[in-house]
Amino acid sequence: MTFFGLPFQDIVFYTLAAILLYAALRVITTRNPVYAALYLVLAFFTAAGVWLLLEAEFLAIVLVLVYVGAVMVLFLFVVMMLDINLDKLREGFWKALPIALPVGGLMAVEMVMIVGVRNFGADKIVAPAARPADYSNTAELGRVLYTDYLLPFELASVVLLVAIIAAIALTLRDRRESKSVDPAKQVLVKKADRIRIVKMDAVVEKDSEASSDVSTVAKEAE
C-alpha cells in the first residue's frame, strides 16, 4: 500500500515525527506551564506511536501507562498546585539566548552530522528481520530481564528503595502546626500536668492607674 509513492509506514512515521518535533518544541517555548505539560503528554503519545512502528509494543504501552498516566498527571498536579512565578523563571531568557542559540545550534549540527544517515543509514545498519505475528515482545523482555539482566534489574529496585527512603527522610517531619491530639498521651495526663498551684500572699495591689480609675468610677456613680 503506497500513498504518493511512499510506503504507508513511512507516511505514519513522518506524521508522528512531525507532531513529536512540534510538541517537543512547544514544551519549551509555550508560556503557560500547564500547556507545556500537556504538550509533553502529546510528545510522549507520539513517541509511543513511533515505538509501535518499531514493533516495541510493550515499551510503547508502558510509556503511555507510566509516563502519560502516572508521571505527567502527577506533574500537572504539581504545576497547578504550586504557585510558580513564571516571570522570574523566564528572567534572563532573552539575555542568554544570543549565546545559547549558537551553542545549541552548533551542537545540533554536529550531532546530525554524526548520528545522521551517513553513519546510521539503512544501508549501514541492517534492519532486523520482521517477527512472526504471534511473537510476544512482552515475554521476550521478561525473559531477558530475569536472566541476562537480572543484576541490573535487581539493582534498579534498590535504587527505587533509596528514592523512597530519601523522599521520606527529607520530607516527613512532625507537624507542629497540626492541632490533633494523641489519645494515648491524653489518658496519661496527671493532675500536676494540668493545674499549677501558685502560692501567693494576700496583698492588695497598689497600682496608681488602677486605683485612680476606680476612684473616677466611684465619683461618677455618686
Binding site: P152, L155, A156, V158, V159, V162, I165, A166, A169, L170
Partner: peptide, 13 residues
C-alpha cells in the same frame, strides 16, 4: 550506570 545512580542518589539525599 545503575551502580553510579545508586551511589549518586544516596549522596544527594
Amino acid at each position: 550506570y545503575v551502580g553510579l545512580e545508586l551511589l549518586s542518589l544516596s549522596l544527594y539525599a
